[in-house]
Simulated scan of single mutants.
Amino acid sequence: MQIDWQGVMPAVTTKFTSDDKLDLEMFEVNILAQVEAGVSAIILGGTLGEASTLSHEEKKALIIETVRIVNGKIPVIINVAEQTTKRAIEAAKVAEECGAKALMMLPPMRYKANDYETVTYFKTVANSTKLPIMIYNNPVDYGIEVTLDMLGELIECENIQAIKESTRDISNVTRIKSRFGDRLKVLTGVDTLGLESILMGADGWVAGLVCAFPAETVAIYKLAKAGRIDEAISIYRWFLPLLELDINPQLVQNIKLAEVATGIGTENVRAPRLPLQGDERKRVLKIIKEGVSSRPVLPEYKLL
């Protein structure tokens, strides 16, 4: 399957039962809601997916199950976030064997690699697989920035095709597009810059609150790309208080609470994460309640 690297791509949460096993039944409910809303791909194993807490077998099971659920309608993308080059190559191999169609790759975990080491890491993994790759650039959370010069070296690998832009610098969309044109697709990775990035030319949106509000997220993207900017802005203004739940250390707990409110998820997280407590829980629930009670009526957006 060809990856177009455009549209809305949810970084989905992993669903757990109350006794800490994979909840594949609720997981399917959510994935089907994403497909119905018109997302372009499903991304597994990111921060929202609590990937660092998943076993090797659980990751395989999630890929296989997602491939079954989407049934060829959209591609499944697996995030690769490993501490060693060897483990990253192994993860890419397993992803391909289990039916994933692309990779999203972070720089090496824990070790703060320099520019040369980071480029070598990405290139080595890219050269080990035929799967197309989206580089995840998030120096705010992971401490390593993939610069324009580094990207210039990385695109020597034909299967490095896109970048998830999460520097929080909206001008980076323009910088990347100006330098690389269509050779490198740009997907925004920050929910609170979603519409702004699309209007500045981003090809897609790797989204978080889409996990709870798939239709609204896709509608914003489609309307913006169709030039119906005022309609997109109107929905986005409603959405912003919810989107701000994504730029928070407890984004997983926040978004899972939102999924509960919209009927397509559960609150269960895996330790060391714990459900929100006290005043913070009340604050988040208030935002979610207000958002759900005022959900906008969406225009027909799917065929835009």
Rank of each mutant, 00 (worst) to 15 (best):
Q2M: 13
M9L: 12
T13F: 05
T13C: 10
S18K: 09
K21F: 06
K21G: 01
D23I: 07
N30R: 02
A33Y: 05
V35T: 06
G38V: 01
S40E: 11
A41H: 01
L48V: 07
G49N: 02
E50I: 00
S52A: 12
H56M: 12
E58K: 07
A61P: 03
I63L: 14
I64V: 14
T66D: 07
K73I: 14
E82P: 12
Q83V: 15
T85G: 08
E90N: 10
A102I: 10
P108W: 06
M109D: 11
R110G: 11
Y111L: 13
K112L: 12
V119N: 04
N127D: 14
P132K: 03
M134V: 00
V140D: 11
L151R: 03
G152D: 02
I155W: 03
S166E: 10
I170F: 02
R175F: 08
R175T: 09
S178I: 12
D182S: 13
T188Q: 06
T188M: 06
G189H: 07
D191R: 09
D191I: 10
T192C: 14
G194I: 02
G194S: 04
L195Q: 03
I198M: 10
D203Q: 00
A207K: 09
L209M: 15
P214H: 08
V218M: 10
R228T: 00
A232Y: 04
W238K: 05
W238E: 01
F239H: 01
L240N: 04
D246E: 15
Q250V: 15
V252T: 08
N254A: 05
N254D: 13
E259V: 14
V260F: 07
A261H: 05
T262I: 14
I264L: 08
E267P: 14
A271G: 14
P272Y: 13
R283Y: 14
L285E: 15
K286Y: 08
I287G: 10
I288A: 01
K289S: 08
